[in-house]
């Protein structure tokens, strides 16, 4: 069980940032998993009053405030008009509506959990995080940065006409994924992301001419994945099984993108 000595409703980001430099202090996300640890928190810093709970849209991008909940991004109609709706698809297996009404996008991404569905899906898109000190950083760089005391202010997803597809394999409907896979295609480029390996999601960017036959694309990509992405074992599945799943999910995602095929899964 966690303890909190003090609670601070931050009045601005500078205050939040400077408080967060103390190692005992913590920025609160949705607090859904706060009770999993035995954290002894000095000051709990709440960003709730900074207006960071909106999804803003302009001609080029979506800007999602860090305090937006997973349910917000799941039900946002304009966001899900893009990218074949993979954002909603990537969150709707996460436990239940109640949890998604609490869990925040900022908390989810900042933690960079290996099993994260959202991280996997967003990595396949042209996504950036806006950090208070670090500035705007591509999500693909952020995912590999060490955990520090910066603040993730918002998430920026560039609008483009890419097609995307997202599939996971789970042991049961509300479990964490055994493997998560997102694939997108845009302007001759393929992004293949594998998450819950069980290590952190990994993105492979493959520049491939679009008019190749499907099988060529798939086989080449699978070969590249085999060489570049490793899989580990935990009690949800062995590395060997994840490797098998990866091939199937990548294939089905590519198929979905090229032919609009529907395999459900």
């Amino acid at each position: 069980m966690f303890t909190i000595d003090n609670y601070v409703m931050a009045e601005n980001l500078e205050e939040a940032y400077s408080l967060n430099q103390n190692r005992r202090n913590v920025i609160l996300g949705g607090t859904m998993w706060l009770r999993l640890g035995r954290k002894k928190i000095g000051k709990a810093i709440d960003l709730s009053s900074l207006g960071l709970n909106n999804i803003e849209e302009d001609d080029e991008k979506f800007t999602i405030g860090c305090m937006c909940t997973l349910r917000n991004i799941e039900t946002n109609k304009s966001l899900n008009k893009y990218f074949n709706g993979i954002i909603a698809k990537s969150v709707n297996n996460i436990v239940g509506v109640q949890l998604r009404n609490g869990a925040t996008i900022g908390g989810t991404l900042f933690s960079r959990f290996g099993f994260s569905d959202v991280l996997t899906a967003l990595l396949s898109l042209d996504t950036y995080v806006n950090l208070y000190k670090g500035g705007i950083v591509p999500l693909s760089d952020f995912v590999n940065m060490p955990l520090d005391n910066d603040i993730l202010i918002n998430v920026i997803i560039k609008k483009d006409s890419r097609r995307a597809s997202y599939l996971t394999h789970r042991k049961s409907s509300s479990d964490l994924p055994v493997l998560a896979c997102a694939v997108s295609n845009y302007d001759g480029e393929w992004n293949v992301v594998l998450g819950a390996r069980p290590m952190k999601a990994k993105l492979i960017n493959i520049k491939k001419n679009y008019n190749l036959t499907k099988d060529d694309v798939v086989e080449e990509m699978l070969e590249i994945i085999k060489q570049n992405i490793g899989f580990g074992s935990n009690y949800r599945g062995s590395g060997k099984y994840r490797q098998i799943l990866a091939e199937v999910l990548v294939r089905r995602n590519i198929d979905e993108i090229i032919s609009g095929g529907n395999h459900g899964n």
Binding site: M1, I4, Y7, L28, G30, T31, M32, W33, L34, R35, L36, A44, D46, S48, R71, V95, G96, V97, Q98, L99, N101, G102, S174
Partner: peptide, 27 residues
């Protein structure tokens, strides 16, 4: 439970279902 998985503690906050076991009272 202690892991936000069971839904037993669901209450509505401003009409939306939330997990009261994982939400700070101050929130």
């Amino acid at each position: 439970c202690e892991t936000s998985n069971c839904g037993l503690c669901t209450v509505l906050m401003d009409g939306k279902p939330i997990l009261s076991c994982s939400t700070l009272a101050l929130r």
